[in-house]
Design a protein around this nucleic acid. Sequence first.
DNA 1: AATGAGCGCTGCAAATTAGGAAGCACAAAG
DNA 2: CTTTGTGCTTCCTAATTTGCAGCGCTCATT
Lengths: 302, 302
Amino acid sequence: MKHLQTLLLIEAVAKAGSIRKAAEDMNITSSALNRRIQGFEEEFGAPIFERLPRGVRLNPAGELLIQHIRSQMSDLERVRAQVADLSGVRRGHVSIACSQAIQPYFMPREIAEYRREHSGVSFSVHVRDRDAAEEDLRSYQSDLALVFEPRHHAEFDVILSIEQPVCAVMSRDHPLAGREKLRLRDCLAYPHVVPPPAIGIRYLLDLAVGRMSQKLAPSIEADSFEFMRHYVLNDQAVGFQFPIGLNIDGDDRFAIFPLGERDVPYGKLSLLQMKGRILPVAPARFANQLALSLVDLRLPAV
Amino acid sequence: MKHLQTLLLIEAVAKAGSIRKAAEDMNITSSALNRRIQGFEEEFGAPIFERLPRGVRLNPAGELLIQHIRSQMSDLERVRAQVADLSGVRRGHVSIACSQAIQPYFMPREIAEYRREHSGVSFSVHVRDRDAAEEDLRSYQSDLALVFEPRHHAEFDVILSIEQPVCAVMSRDHPLAGREKLRLRDCLAYPHVVPPPAIGIRYLLDLAVGRMSQKLAPSIEADSFEFMRHYVLNDQAVGFQFPIGLNIDGDDRFAIFPLGERDVPYGKLSLLQMKGRILPVAPARFANQLALSLVDLRLPAV
DNA sequence: AATGAGCGCTGCAAATTAGGAAGCACAAAG
DNA sequence: CTTTGTGCTTCCTAATTTGCAGCGCTCATT
């Protein structure tokens, strides 16, 4: 789209941090790019880049502008998708950022189901912790985010939110595996493997131990739940995960115990989008499908 | 702003209804304009105009696009205003659509007050009935609308809403002028002058008479409240207006009676903006001031 | 039925604009 | 103190856009 060329170049420069680098990325000469930037700043009425000895950086005006540029490009994309839609073609792309727990079972199933109906739609899936997911939405890199315990509710539109208990995960032959019920303090008596603080489940665990005498003393801190799952099979350790990330009835190597809400607070799984943004057809419909599926996972009222 | 040139031309064509006319308006030749449109349609991937024997008209895709164009231009304007703001200058423009009742006293006072602080800000004020005001918001011709009884609440963001009683207005020497209180049916016994159905106050009167035996039998239907005010001085007629449009204590030629809510429903005066739109600095601040002033006019709870 | 006005569209040459190559001044890094 | 990398400028050429004139078409009017 030609009339956006300059804006695209500005974004490239902002990312590259230097005009010459950006010029190379965009396959034009630095002189041409330089002039376009200067021309734009002139008609815009204010400089948008700070000139540093080692390159350039967006100034506050530029930050404002780049946000406008991204929102504008994304909105144009939405219009094009909507136009394609009304001429009968169901195409498009959905970019979604989500927590690790969503990756193994939930998201593949949902995407496969969606694509059964709309094979023209393509997907990008990004694993993101809650902060990174929010940043993705803000910069329009993702249309949707499905994350546990998002930090800044108010900056986004919450399409739907459900609760999930934290579950203790261990091998079937673990000493605790025979119990009827389990409390957090039981788990902490054994070696436990927990994710780093950036991840939702750790946040909840930290909250929980904050009001206990016992402390978190992780034998292992790992940012991969897949690692955790396999690790607990090899040691008498306890891991933690949400039900949505577990194949509860399908794998008899594990013992899984949901922890009560008074023990560890439930995790809030929220489906988010950029505030006020109108999503293109495909992301909007997919969000709708996700919302429906998530409602089915809602905890029965206590 | 050069990169928007094509979009601006598209808007001009949409408005003019013909490429040649628009070309004249924009001071270029029709051939150049024609080719730009064709070029845009090609890279956009779909035609946006229907070619008719007497000119062109936006097709559905074009309608979608023009909405994007307008929102985009307005957002860029917002960014520029914000940038100007952060370099210390307080400039900008506010475009507001409002009911007639707002014109004589309320709006002039508010604008004057705002401009005392920010003399760099300019204003456009448009008199609009409730439907036209909404259309103004939708097409980004106005930043704000202050109207009685807006029809489609849900399509807009309601910044604030207050209630005002309908008042009967007559000359001091009118036979009814000595009364303590007045009811609608008293007024209808005399010649009355009412606005056309498009105007909020008429809508309320129609609602009111709908549940009465008596009917509205206007001697005069006039779309100017100023006309109404002067007319009732020249005939033993009754007119209707909201308090905000009356100089209640300042003009002793008139007798004014608020009508009870059970008699004629109160009018809802709403300050609206386009849904989800982020207003530029000046309109946003002015909206804020309006909201504060309107709150002072709120009816004391009954 | 004929006519003329108004429309969108197209070929071609002229005018305008944007692009590339090379080089300058400057500042940080080695 | 040299080297490297930066933004910016100048000159010239390439690419794009514009204006002009004209074609074919539809519709309202004569």
